[in-house]
């Protein structure tokens, strides 16, 4: 599973950091950093983080590109 965060939209509410600390972290006061490739054991947490984001800035999904079937 891959994630991408629309950091134009992100306002550092940091809900994702609480829900999936191994995937999201605050770097400084309000800079969000994320692991674009989510380890298998973190996927459920990442999905919950995406759902909880107050500004809906997180997209999760399979890697885009060839081989989508």
């Amino acid at each position: 599973m891959q994630i991408v965060v629309d950091l134009n939209r992100c306002q550092a509410y940091a809900q994702c950091v609480f829900l999936a600390p191994e995937v999201f972290e605050l770097h400084g006061e309000e800079t969000l950093m994320f692991m674009p490739t989510v380890p298998d054991d973190q996927q459920e947490r990442a999905r919950r983080a995406a759902a909880a984001c107050p500004v809906q800035a997180i997209l999760t999904g399979e890697q885009a590109g060839p081989g989508e079937w």
């Binding site: 599973m1 891959q2 692991m35 674009p36 999904g61 399979e62 890697q63 885009a64 989508e68």
Partner: peptide, 25 residues
């Protein structure tokens, strides 16, 4: 964007920054 941030800091690897798809195309 992560190339000059997470990747240079060693928090993500350069080959692990693929974009998720929103749907099948």
């Amino acid at each position: 964007p992560p190339l000059s941030k997470q990747v240079l800091l060693g928090k993500a690897r350069a080959e692990e920054i693929g974009l998720p798809r929103r749907r099948k195309v």
